[in-house]
Each structure stands twice: as structure tokens, then as C-alpha cells.
Simulated scan of single mutants.
Amino acid sequence: MIALTVLSGVLAGCAGSEATRAGNTALPTVSGGPATGPATGPASPSRASESGPPVLAPGPGGLTPVFERRADASGSRNKVVALTFDADMTADQGPRAAAGERFDNPGLIASLRRMKVPSTVFMTGRWAQEYPAQARSIGTDPLFEIANHSYSHYAFSSPCYGLPTVAEAGMRGDVERAFTAIRKTGARNLVPYFRFPGGCYDDASLKALAPTGVTAVQWDVVSGDAFATDADAVAEQVLDGVEPGSLVVMHCTRSAAPVTDEAVRRIVPELRERGYRFVKVSELMRG
């Protein structure tokens, strides 16, 4: 079992690793390069997938493309931002859930519905198995779309904040297993997007996932909600970082991000006052 302190380091470390990118106003829309290795150049523009949502064309050498933000969203008509929420749960956290630890956050989902905020939830297969009714509810509500966050939140490159690592030969199977687990709940609004646990990837993992046809989705704004206790501080970090076309990473896990709901209830009206419109990742990618 991964101890809570290790998971805290994973999430907080992930946020720290992206801090400089969150403040970079010149980030490219796509990046074929890994977060922990040499860059491989930009991927091609978006195109429709067979299931409908847009995906990016493969990067150089056929690598899985990576989307970070929509850099061409300038002007008042394009003031769009995507709020994304990682629903994290590892394969071995069942005993903790059975003992009462909550890895879900129904209050957050209720707030997003009440405020009518389109959102993308990056869900692990293990989370879907633990909370099938919630996964089905999220995945049948047109306000939301569900993307893949691996089956058990193990790393796809190493080192990655102490996470156990998926063997390269098992990476494709892990992603497919997660999609299967989510679909078994009855969720229908699935999109062919994948978020690497910890945001960690390299050329080997991009190559391993290429046959799945997914587009990897990162972010340019770190909310800092992981294990935060000050909702206002989380809100301020998001409000300070958002620009037109931004993609914000947050969490849908009460035990790991207890103030996210409260922070979102401040973030949403303030960004709307600034003229921002909320979109799902699929709409952000469509441009």
C-alpha cells in the first residue's frame, strides 16, 4: 500500500514540478516531448476521432501526442478555460476505503452541476470500481466527460514521486483496463484522453500508448489543492494563473483534496466576472 504521506508527496510534488510551466505564458498547445526526458517536437493539429471527440495527430515517430493548453485562445470571444479533476485511487487502497476513507467528492460534483460548469474528470479504473454509481452518474451527465487516468495511478516513467511504476510492456494494458472498468459502470461520456499519473512520462511511455489512440492531456495551471487546507489559497493560485485557453488540474478526492469544492465555488464566479467561459477538454482541444 502506498502510504498517505507518499501520496501527499506525489500530488504536491506533481504540482511543484509544473509550477514553472503554469506561469509560462508562451506554452505551446501541444508537446511531443516528455516531462522527464528529451523533447521530440510538436504534434499535429487536432482531428476528429472515430468516437467523435477531437484528438491530436500522432507526434514525431508516431508517439502519443500531448496537449497542455490552447495557446491561440486570444481575444474576448476566446476567453475559455477547462477545469479538470483527477479522481485518484490506487489498486491497493481498498482497505482504506472500507475503513471509511473517502476518495470521492460528491459535494464537488454537486457544486459543478449547480453552477453549470462543464468539466472533464480524469478517472482511474480503481476509482470507478469503488464508486460505480458515481462514475455512472458523472458519465451519463452531458455536463461532464470522463477521461482515463490509468487503472491504479502507478507511474508510467521513473522516478515519479515515489509511485510504483508500470512496466513498459503493461502500459497499454493498464490504460485499456481502466477504460473497461469505467465502461462497466454504465458511463457513456468517455473521451479518448489520458492523463499520466503524476504528470510523468517519457518517449518510451508515449510510444507504448500510441496503439491506444489516446491523446495525453497535461495542464498549464496547477491549483495546489492536493492536501491543501486553505480554500482561498487554492482559489488565488488558480485565479492568478488562468489565461485564455488554460487547462487547470484539480482533484476529485476528499481525503487528498478536502477544500477543492470550496475553492471551486469561489473560482467559478470570479472567472465568469472576468468574462471566461468554462469548457470541457474536448471543446478546448477542438478550438
Rank of each mutant, 00 (worst) to 15 (best):
A135S: 14
P28V: 02
V279K: 09
A204D: 11
S8G: 12
A19C: 07
W219V: 05
H251D: 04
N189F: 11
A135T: 15
V166D: 05
P65V: 08
I267T: 09
E18K: 12
V6N: 13
S255I: 11
A167L: 11
M89H: 09
T212Y: 12
S223E: 03
G224R: 08
T229H: 13
E283K: 10
G199I: 06
W127V: 02
A135K: 10
H153V: 03
R77T: 13
A226M: 04
A97C: 00
P118E: 08
V259M: 05
G186Y: 11
C252S: 12
M115H: 14
V121T: 05
R265Q: 15
F85D: 02
L206S: 06
L190T: 04
L209P: 02
D232K: 13
T29S: 15
G9S: 14
A208Q: 04
A257C: 01
V55K: 10
P164R: 14
S137L: 12
R265S: 11
S158Q: 13
S119N: 10
V222Y: 08
G170V: 01
C160N: 10
V166R: 12
M123F: 11
P192I: 04
E283C: 00
G52C: 05
S205D: 11
R69M: 13
V55A: 07
A87W: 09
R266Y: 01
A26T: 04
E262L: 11
D88F: 05
M115Y: 14
K280H: 01
K207G: 05
F103Y: 15
A235G: 04
V175D: 10
D203I: 00
A204G: 01
V249F: 02
S255Q: 09
F67N: 07
L284Q: 02
A257M: 01
S282V: 01
V121R: 08
R195N: 02
R70F: 02
N78P: 00
Q218C: 10
Q218K: 13
C160K: 09
V166S: 06
S119G: 13
P197G: 10
S246G: 10
V234S: 07
A99V: 00
K79L: 07
S255H: 11
T90S: 14
D240H: 13
S158F: 04
A167I: 01
A15E: 15
F67W: 09
P60V: 11
P258V: 01
S8K: 15
G75V: 01
P159S: 09
D202R: 03
V234D: 07
K280W: 01
D220G: 03
S246I: 04
A82P: 08
D202K: 03
R183H: 09
V55T: 15
